[in-house]
């Protein structure tokens, strides 16, 4: 069993229960996106998966191994990388040092240079800024650094918390394109939490819609974009924003979605 499996996951902050039984599965070479409004538990879901928050109940399996009671450090060692909300780069350390710390769990395996070369090839912009302090980078560059740092651990599963937050559309496209490359070239399992629904729909193979701690709809992006209920509630009710979800998507489902849009 590879990839990430989550079953009946519940989580709480003290007495406030935030997740009420989440099931999801991410296979190697697959991108699963979780969308939903602010405060529905998307970040909590990722924190429970990566060990920052201990789940109250339920199972989390990473490559077939139960990790729901492991610490964040252990889970990182087992091959799950978490690119956190707000990037959380190490600001006073250089880009290069951020990368070498990303390789902390794999520092003794002798493949550091290969991975560094590969990470910098994915994000050439970082190579130009290799000796600058991470705190001096722009938001987009910090996001790239956070992703590159996560990749330095050679993870099999990567979870990302709103990588597009606050970035210019062109940068969002770059980040999303990199995720697709990681999926296709390295067979990474990617769990992506996004508020940028357009970006999420463009890249994901499967989408979960969350509301108040539960999954209220799921399916392929095409299926969900067709679901009038989901579209009205979570993808923005007005025609301009929901139109923009499907506009850049050249997939065969686009016309159908457009039709349903027009029929309203």
């Amino acid at each position: 069993m590879t990839g990430l499996q989550v079953e009946g996951l519940t989580a709480a902050y003290d007495r406030l229960q935030v997740l009420h039984g989440i099931d999801l599965e991410v296979a190697q070479g697959q991108i699963v996106a979780v969308i939903g409004a602010n405060g529905v538990g998307k970040t909590t879901l990722l924190r429970s998966v990566s060990g920052l928050l201990r789940p109250r109940s339920g199972r989390v399996q990473l490559n077939g191994e139960e990790i729901s009671s492991a610490s964040a450090e252990q889970i990182a060692r087992q091959g799950l990388a978490h690119v956190p909300e707000n990037r959380l780069v190490f600001p006073s350390l250089s880009v290069d040092d951020n990368l070498s710390l990303g390789g902390w769990t794999t520092r003794k395996d002798g493949h550091y240079e290969e991975r560094r070369t590969h990470a910098l090839a994915l994000f050439p912009r970082l190579a130009d800024r290799i000796n600058l302090s991470a705190g001096s980078l722009s938001g987009g560059e910090q996001q790239m650094l956070a992703m590159a740092r996560a990749l330095m651990a050679a993870p099999s599963v990567i979870v990302l918390d709103e990588p597009s937050l606050g970035l210019a559309p062109r940068l969002v496209g770059e980040i999303v394109g990199t995720l697709a490359r990681l999926r296709d070239e390295q067979q990474l399992a990617v769990l992506l939490v996004e508020q940028n629904i357009r970006a999420a729909f463009r890249v994901a193979d499967y989408v979960l819609v969350m509301d108040r701690g539960v999954v209220v709809a799921e399916g392929s992006p095409a299926e969900l974009a067709d679901d009038a209920r989901v579209r009205a509630a979570y993808l923005g009710g007005d025609s301009t924003s929901s139109g923009s979800i499907v506009a850049p998507d050249p997939s065969p489902t686009t016309p159908a979605t457009k039709n349903s849009q027009e029929s309203r």
């Binding site: 990566s50 060990g51 920052l52 610490s71 964040a72 450090e73 990182a76 060692r77 990388a81 978490h82 956190p84 959380l88 780069v89 190490f90 600001p91 006073s92 350390l93 040092d97 070498s100 710390l101 990303g102 902390w104 769990t105 520092r107 740092r149 996560a150 330095m152 651990a153």
Partner: peptide
């Protein structure tokens, strides 16, 4: 040293330090 940088990482950004596996 890498260990020293790991210590600084813990000081600056404890959550991210845990996420890269520094205890």
């Amino acid at each position: 040293t890498l260990l020293g940088k790991a210590m600084r990482a813990c000081a600056e950004q404890p959550v991210a330090a845990r996420l890269v596996g520094i205890s």
